[in-house]
């Protein structure tokens, strides 16, 4: 290095001409035959290092690509099977919520109702008995006298809850199934769950109709 020529700090001298700079680097960039077969360590290490980076980059992209979807903002999102779109709802949780929203007004929190006015659900043979009857009562409602646990209720008036004509609630089949499943295992009741499919099937079979009477229901098993 031409240290002696760089004495004046106001002017940095050049140690190489432009033409020789061009020519020498053109030569350095060219593929020169390595006659002795002496591969230098640096070029090989650099290429290995670069390949390593590419490999790492590929692995990272494979792991955190989010399937290259414009809708996936979380890099840890797992591949979609379509199933997780419909989240599982616990029918007991949903049923309890539905019960608290409507049923509780007459049947009360303890499910015992008001003797002589509103029939009880706790221990009731109508609740723990035939699924077919129970679903019909909630979907279409019930009017007229009914005997529950040996007590006569002369003017029962169960409102219409299903998605049928004249319904004030328009609950989905899922909600009705959930609330029925809930009351069938609450307050000491031990009956099995009611499926959404059963509610849907009964609603499809009976269609729009007026409220059931206890007599009609007793004919159904």
């Amino acid at each position: 290095m031409s240290t002696s020529s760089n004495q004046d700090p106001r002017l940095t001298q050049s140690a190489a001409s432009d033409t020789s700079l061009l020519a020498a680097h053109e030569k350095a960039a060219g593929k020169q035959a390595d006659e002795k077969g002496n591969y230098k360590l640096m070029p090989l290490a650099l290429l290995f290092g670069f390949s390593g980076l590419i490999f790492w980059a590929g692995s990272y992209m494979g792991r955190f690509s989010g399937q290259f979807s414009g809708n996936i903002f979380d890099e840890n999102a797992q591949p979609s099977t379509g199933a997780e779109v419909v989240a599982k709802i616990d029918p007991i949780v949903l049923g309890k919520k539905q019960y608290a929203a409507a049923c509780i007004a007459c049947h009360l929190a303890d499910g015992k109702g008001l003797t002589g006015v509103n029939p009880p659900l706790a221990g009731s043979e109508w609740v723990t008995g035939s699924e077919e009857r129970l679903v019909r009562i909630v979907v279409h409602g019930l009017k007229g006298p009914i005997k529950v646990m040996g007590v006569e209720y002369s003017a029962a008036a169960m409102p219409v809850f299903g998605k049928v004509a004249g319904s004030g609630y328009n609950w989905s089949d899922e909600k009705i199934a959930a609330v029925l499943t809930y009351i069938r295992q609450e307050w000491g009741n031990t009956a099995g769950p009611i499926s959404t499919e059963l509610v849907a099937a009964i609603r499809a079979k009976e269609g729009d109709r007026k409220e059931w009477s206890a007599e009609e229901l007793l004919k159904i098993q």
Binding site: G49, L53, Y60, G66
Partner: peptide, 18 residues
């Protein structure tokens, strides 16, 4: 932003180390 845009930038930054 979509996850892949950030991921791609991350690996690109690493490749630039070369």
């Amino acid at each position: 932003a979509p996850a892949w845009i950030s991921s791609l930038a991350i690996v690109s930054c690493s490749l630039l180390v070369f």
